[in-house]
Amino acid sequence: MKVAVCVSHVPDTATKVKIGQDEKHIDPAGVVFIINPYDEFAVEEALKTKEKFGGEVVAISVGNDNSKETLRKALAMGVDKGILLKTDKSLDSVGIAKALAEELKNQQFDIVFMGKQSVDYDDSIVGQLTSEFLGYSCISNAVYLNIEGQKVIAEREIEGGKEVVESELPVVITTQKGLNEPRYASLKGIMASKKKEILEKPIVETTNHTEVVKMRKPAAKQPGRIIGTDVSAVPELVKLLHEEAKVI
C-alpha cells in the first residue's frame, strides 16, 4: 500500500497571535509553530494502514523551510520519508491543493490522508479539492475507517450523528478527532528521523483565486456587570437576559 499524508505547519492554538504591520499576515515573532493537530490523526492513520498492509508512508508539506520541522515530526512518529514542496508565497487552498495533487499524481498513491482542516486558515477544503484534481474519491471528516481489498468503509461525523459511507481506492481521506489516538514520537523515532530523507521540490506555479485583503481580530469582549449578590437580583437578571442579551 502506498500511503501519503499531507501535513501543515501551523501556529500553536495556545499562542496569542498578533496581526502584522501589513494587516494581511500574522506577526510570526514569538509564535510557536506545530504540526496541525488534525494532521496528527492523519499521520497516525497512515502509520496504522502501513502496519496493517505493509508499504510506505510519505509525508508531504507545502511551505517554506520552516515546514521541515513539521515534516520531521511526522518522520519521528514513523513516516518513511518527507517531501517539502517549497514556496515562500502565501497560497490559497486551491493553490495548495494543486501543488499537492501535482506531486501525488506522479507517485500513484493508493490513499492520501490529511486533516479535515488546518487550524490556521480553517478553509476545510484542501482535501476535497485535492481529490478532485487527482480524480480520486474523497471521504471527509472520517472518525472510523476500515479498508478491505479495494473497498473502504468509513464513518463520517455529520451534524447530530454519523454517516457510514463506502468507497473504493484510490481515495483522499480527511481525518477528524475521534478517528484514533495519535502516538507520541518516541525518542528512538526522533533519533531515527535524522537519517530519513526530506526531499525538496519546487511547486507548480499557480495563481491564487482569492486574495487576503485584511486580517482583523474579533472585537474585545465587553466587561461583565454585577447586578447584585443575592436572590433579590434574580428578577433584574431575568429581565436583562430577556431584553438585553435576548437569550431567554
Binding site: R183, Y184, S186, L187, K188, G189, I190, M191
Partner: peptide, 19 residues
C-alpha cells in the same frame, strides 16, 4: 517505555535510544 524514557543513553542494540 514506548516513548523510550528508560536507559536513554544506552546503545540501540538493547532497544534504547542512545541519546
Amino acid at each position: 517505555g514506548e516513548l523510550g524514557l528508560f536507559g536513554t543513553t544506552l546503545p540501540q542494540k538493547y532497544n534504547c535510544a542512545e541519546l
